[in-house]
Computed example of a mutant assay.
Amino acid sequence: MAIAMMVAVCVGLVLAGCQSGPREAKPFSASATAQPTNAQPSSAQPSTPSTVPAPPGTVHFTAQGDIGVSTGAKKVLDVIAGLQPQFNLALGDFAYKAGIEQQFCDMVKGKLGENFPYQLITGNHESDGSDGDIAKFVECLPNRLPGLQGEYGIQWYVDVPQADPLVRFIMVSPGINFKDGQPLDYSRDSERWRWTTDAIDGAASAQIPWTVVGMHTPCLSVGKYGCQPGQDFTNMLMEKKVDLVLAGHDHDYQRTHQLGVGGSCPGLQPESFSSACLMDTDQTMVKGAGTVFATVGTGGVGLYDVNDNDAEAGYFAAWSGRNRDPSLGTLDLRASADELSARFVPAEGDSFTDSFAIGRR
């Protein structure tokens, strides 16, 4: 309650202006044949967000997925509350049980405040309705970011701050099933592929300093899963030089070096490693050299094992799982005109940490 009262005082200072900070989308009825909405802003405005402003010229946000309603989830929400970000990116897999969507939403609001921007992209557990319904989560945790474009909860982008933006966030849903067990089509040159590439290219044309893509499924992994978003889609993100790609799904933390295509690396090949795709291998990287991929499936549910000997391990700078430095927690990120920086902040009782930064020349 004290946090909610404190952040309410700061309402008018943040995301609506956020100076020193593209339609409010209706809930989505998922189906394999659903197409992206046209990217026109509606006249509806999100309710006033309850947030604490970042320093002038900074965007401060957190990100994690695979949450649940257990003690672990509540501990991670406590971490987020203590960090006081402007908003949070929830990277899918929320309640893990059908019929308790409102319980999940009440848990989030109880920890972060009634109007905190807890921004959703669906995971596989709610995309097909088996363990919850993304439309119900969207209803009780609606978009709070002004200027959002697309299908909130499924495929959307937003520039933050809305005026003179520092970051374009592009949230998509490749590699997971929707109604009737069918995935949405993100294959090369499909409508959703073109929507994504247009959003990335639009950020570059608008000279927005940073582009962050978020989705539920990762491609590269030393954990449980293979490349569910698809090799072509992943290589496209690298070819476009997206700065950071965030994912969940694997219940662990994994962060790659800065990876890029071109020259001796024509593209990533899942389940293999090529040192030619490594653009930078320290913690301080340069914008435009490549892409960093971070899986943050540490939002509260039980962790998976990680494999130090995985074929793709050479791409990774850091990882944590059930059998190695197990830690729930969140990625804490800040963006200014000159730098995008991140650190993993563990939940109470855990100790794993990681940090990295991408700077502009």
Rank of each mutant, 00 (worst) to 15 (best):
M1T: 09
A2I: 15
M5Y: 10
M6N: 07
A8H: 10
C10D: 15
V11H: 15
V11D: 14
L15S: 00
L15C: 06
L15F: 03
L15Y: 03
Q19M: 12
A30T: 15
Q35M: 14
T37Q: 03
N38H: 15
Q40F: 09
S42D: 13
Q45V: 11
S47C: 13
P53K: 07
F61R: 04
T71D: 14
T71Q: 13
G72K: 09
D78Q: 13
Q84Y: 09
F87W: 02
L91P: 04
G92P: 04
Y96D: 03
K97G: 10
E101P: 04
V108L: 05
V108M: 05
G110T: 06
K111W: 05
L112W: 02
F116C: 08
P117L: 00
T122C: 09
S130D: 13
G132K: 07
G132Q: 01
K136I: 13
E139F: 03
P142W: 01
P146E: 02
L148V: 07
Y152E: 06
G153A: 06
D159N: 08
D159V: 04
L166D: 10
V167L: 08
F169G: 07
V172F: 09
I176G: 00
N177V: 04
D180E: 09
L184G: 10
S187T: 15
R194P: 02
T197E: 12
D198C: 03
I200G: 00
A203R: 02
Q207Y: 09
W210Q: 03
W210G: 02
W210K: 11
L220D: 00
S221I: 03
C227M: 09
T234M: 14
M236E: 06
L237P: 00
M238E: 05
V242G: 03
L244D: 07
Q254R: 10
H257R: 02
Q258N: 08
Q258K: 08
G260F: 03
G260Q: 12
G263R: 01
S264F: 09
C265Q: 06
L268Q: 01
Q269F: 06
C277R: 06
C277N: 12
M279N: 02
T281Q: 13
M285G: 05
V286T: 15
V286M: 12
A289H: 08
T291L: 12
V292C: 01
F293N: 04
A294R: 04
V296H: 03
T298P: 05
T298N: 13
G302D: 15
L303Q: 06
D305F: 14
D305Y: 11
V306S: 08
D308H: 14
D308L: 12
N309Y: 08
D310M: 00
A313N: 08
G314F: 09
S320P: 12
G321F: 08
P326W: 10
S327I: 12
L328P: 02
L328M: 13
S341A: 14
R343A: 11
S351G: 13
T353H: 02
I358W: 01
G359W: 02
